[in-house]
Design a protein around this nucleic acid. Sequence first.
DNA 1: TTCTTAATGCAACATGGTTGCATTAATAAT
DNA 2: ATTATTAATGCAACCATGTTGCATTAAGAA
Lengths: 127, 127
Amino acid sequence: MGVSRKTKTVKLLLDLFDRKDCALSIVELVSTFSGKMNKSTVYRILNRLEESGLLHSFLGNDGLKRYAKGDQRPAKSKNTTMHPHFLCEDCGISSCLPLEISTSSIPNYTIKSSEQLYLGQCNNCQM
Amino acid sequence: MGVSRKTKTVKLLLDLFDRKDCALSIVELVSTFSGKMNKSTVYRILNRLEESGLLHSFLGNDGLKRYAKGDQRPAKSKNTTMHPHFLCEDCGISSCLPLEISTSSIPNYTIKSSEQLYLGQCNNCQM
DNA sequence: TTCTTAATGCAACATGGTTGCATTAATAAT
DNA sequence: ATTATTAATGCAACCATGTTGCATTAAGAA
Ligand SMILES: [Mn+2]
Ligand SMILES: [Mn+2]
Ligand SMILES: [Zn+2]
Ligand SMILES: [Zn+2]
């Protein structure tokens, strides 16, 4: 598991995430790199990068998986802690929110983790 | 938009939601009613019931849409307010959580709503 | 340079969800 | 009760995201 070879395709993806600071959906990535690498390759690299802890992922309310920089694996979180994500309803841009997730406790339930997505308008799209 | 005719199939779905108190994924529902109604019919009825405010929906972290009783449409919320949802990692059961969502404000972002999914163990699956 | 095997490309598949259209049936009108 | 209107259904074909098996390629160790 994890990334063990720095192939051209892996570098392409890592470079992009270096430049871009927002979260990127797989669909965007597959489209961005169409011609440069195969769809399955994108999926597989993203999997490995997440296992390695270089990226983490979350689901938008459109059901699309998005990836962003940083580790979010349980119990190993050094770079990044659990945090909510934001999705702009106007332009679709998405990003990590620098907030702690406060896991409230609920009777009869054991809560292990939580996924939080905030929806609204980003900096550019306001008013 | 909304439900305007109480067809046999609509009654079947409403009856089920009357009996069951938890949230149900479309996949479950399509499977439950296979033989009784068509896949597209299930999707279309659920859409209409949500527009009517009889049901509301959310996405599991598996990307599957789930439906539960009650209205969650913005600005019209009488029955139900915005609330988080729970998904048992062991048995897959899912339900609404009776909690208010506190929309924290974040600089540079206008937050309109939020989707919160709590993951863990349900009553039955604990220890 | 050679060898090992992780990683890729490709095509075929799986699953969730949507759509166009002919037909059926709930309800309104007579 | 009968007829007319049209919402709702079934079906088949489609679309999108995501996965998989397998032959081939290319990192990087030896
Ligand atoms: Mn994040
Ligand atoms: Mn709910
Ligand atoms: Zn925006
Ligand atoms: Zn359970």
